[in-house]
Design a protein around this nucleic acid. Structure first.
Length: 353
DNA sequence: GTCCCGGTAC
DNA sequence: GTACCGGGAC
């Protein structure tokens, strides 16, 4: 049997029953593919159901507010995906009369749709012969063919893209695309794949050369930088002061609190930190540490501290994009996970007293 | 705790 | 090439 036939055969027996595999609708497939970018099926599945329920059509998606989209996206990470989807839904309404494109060359023009997603949507919705090249495909091909070109280098991307398209099963591109990705996700897993039961083990380069754990090769990621963000919780009766985060940093258009960022881990009781807080919030201001958390991103390790702020003088010129929000409405705002976790803990223990 | 996983935009 | 997030495996 050929490589392609083995994969398809394996897929017919082992595939998971997933909702987006029962449709040819480009809009529904787009929802699933963008949600599944950088995301495992188990984590993405509830979000897919939530989005389809809230936005049954691309028109419903386009007419929503961005805050509603981000609120539904909350906790999934990489929020630019949600913002780009919202923009794309509006472009589809305006430029495509609400009919979601099915062909690669149109899809690739849309925000948030790159080579992988254009190939996936076009092959699954229209049967177009475009090979998907995602992390699963990189892994399966690099191991089976023994290719050690780094998958995150320009040369590697080109090489695997060409090979994947040469291997594409022309009789049913969609079936083959599904098969190789599912095979990568479930059998040719990143860690401890069970090569003993793999139907391709007799012809797999990595297996016969004992290189399964060395492939694929990936260039080392850049070092993470440490950041120290100190949040201040300000109350005015039932209202709390929140900030909408702006472009140029993480969590764009999500909400957190007024903050003071320092270059190092400041001593909370130290005079330097106290001076900084007084400079920001007024000389009479006083603060008390509530909670500390560490939040890890790709390129940043964010050390977060939450303080209760008292006797401050509110001054809009100090931090922009500040708004008072009543406590009961706070959870309606999209929040970064580290903020949402804090809010849940802080106000839950408050209620229990 | 520490390490590893994954598409797109710029 | 680098920035974007959160969760799962160990």
């Amino acid at each position: 049997m050929t490589f392609q036939d083995e994969l398809i055969n394996w897929y017919r027996i082992n595939k998971r029953d997933l909702p987006w595999r029962h449709t040819n609708d480009a809009y529904t497939i787009w929802l699933s593919e963008v949600i599944l970018q950088q995301t495992r099926v188990e984590q993405g599945l509830p979000y897919f159901n939530k989005f389809l329920e809230n936005f049954p059509t691309v028109n419903d998606f386009a007419r929503a507010t961005e805050a509603k989209v981000l609120k539904l996206w909350q906790g999934l990470g990489y929020y630019s995906r949600g913002r780009n989807m919202h923009a794309t839904a509006q472009i589809v309404m305006k430029d495509y009369n609400g009919v979601f494109p099915k062909l690669h060359d149109e899809l690739i023009k849309l925000k948030g749709i790159g080579e992988y997603t254009a190939a996936a949507i076009s092959s699954f919705s229209s049967g177009e012969a475009r090979a998907v090249v995602d992390g699963n495909v990189f892994r399966v091909l690099s191991r089976y063919y023994g290719i050690d070109t780094p998958i995150n280098s320009p040369a590697g991307k080109k090489k695997f893209f060409i090979l994947a398209n040469e291997l594409l099963y022309q009789d049913d591109p969609a079936l083959y695309n599904q098969a190789i990705m599912e095979f990568g996700a479930m059998q040719c897993k990143p860690k401890s794949p069970n090569c003993g039961i793999c139907p391709l083990n007799q012809t797999c380069y990595a297996f016969s050369h004992k290189m399964v754990n060395e492939l694929p090769v990936k260039l080392k990621k850049t070092a993470q930088k440490h950041r120290y963000i100190n949040y201040f919780i300000c109350f005015d009766g039932e209202k709390v002061l929140v900030r909408e985060r702006q472009a140029g940093d993480v969590w764009q258009h999500l909400y957190d609190f007024p903050s003071v960022e320092t270059l190092t881990h400041e001593n909370t009781d130290g005079s330097l930190f106290t001076a900084l807080v007084k400079k920001t919030f007024g000389n009479a201001s006083d603060f008390e540490l509530i909670s500390s958390k560490k939040h890890v991103l790709t390129h940043q390790i964010i050390h977060v501290q939450f303080f209760a702020l008292k006797n401050y003088i509110f001054n809009f010129s100090i931090q922009k994009e500040l708004n008072w929000v009543s406590l009961s409405k706070l959870d309606e705002l999209p929040q970064p996970k580290v903020i949402h976790d804090f809010v849940q803990e802080y106000f839950c223990s408050d209620n229990m007293e």
